[in-house]
Design a protein around this nucleic acid. Structure first.
Length: 192
DNA sequence: AGGATGATCATCT
DNA sequence: GATGATCATCCTG
């Protein structure tokens, strides 16, 4: 895969992470022929105590300080890979964690990668979706279109907002965005 | 339906 | 030596 980035995608990924995180709900993400529609995402910024970018560019978080449109993949709890879309101008240290997608393509391949999982759950959860799509830390720092591709899209519903999941800091910041009504959201969605 | 637990390792103190 | 932007599994009710 080596595709030029859609200008509208590029424009949105140069916005701040909280703005972009809401707008990416409904987009299509794919890697190696497998993927689906984004139904859940969270924003992280450089002045956010919960963000890997909070202490400045070092080590694994370097890709977060690239220009919007790159991807940042990190290992969570030593076990799972988690994928972000980097946003904002170069050096700004922002990203959108992709938490869940509704499966659209590569169902056979994804079932092999996650045996025994119901189809609508194949891409539900940040660690689960990278496993189903075959995305690892090797693609951290690549540009969208190299390993992971994105297309504009629309899920045709409303977006709900809640606080982010799994944090020990900045737990009140309402930067989790969900496609209301989707069965593929990783945990209980906000009330409509 | 919901709480506790352990896996496992890069990064940081 | 401690800490996670997690998840599957094993409880309890």
């Amino acid at each position: 895969m080596n595709l030029p980035m859609d200008p509208e995608i590029r424009r949105i990924l140069l916005l701040s992470a909280p703005e972009a995180a809401e707008l990416v709900i409904g987009w299509e993400l794919y890697a190696d022929g497998a993927g689906g529609r984004i139904v859940e995402a969270e924003a992280y910024t450089d002045d956010d105590p919960a963000s890997h970018a909070f202490d400045g560019p070092r080590g694994r978080n370097l890709p977060m300080f690239l220009e919007g449109g790159h991807i940042y993949v990190y290992r969570s709890y030593g076990v799972h890979w988690c994928m972000n879309l980097v946003t904002g101008p170069a050096g700004s240290g922002q990203a959108v964690l992709i938490r869940a997608l509704e499966p659209l393509w590569g169902l056979d391949e994804m079932r092999l990668r996650r045996p025994g999982i119901a189809d609508h759950r194949l891409l539900s959860g940040p660690g689960n979706l990278t496993k189903a799509m075959g995305v690892t830390g090797e693609s951290s720092g690549t540009l969208l279109g190299e390993v992971v591709g994105a297309r504009m899209g629309d899920f045709g519903g409303k977006v709900g907002v809640t606080t982010r999941l799994g944090l020990t800091r900045a737990m009140d910041t309402p930067w989790r965005f969900c496609a209301l009504g989707s069965r593929s959201i990783s945990r209980k969605p906000p009330r409509e």
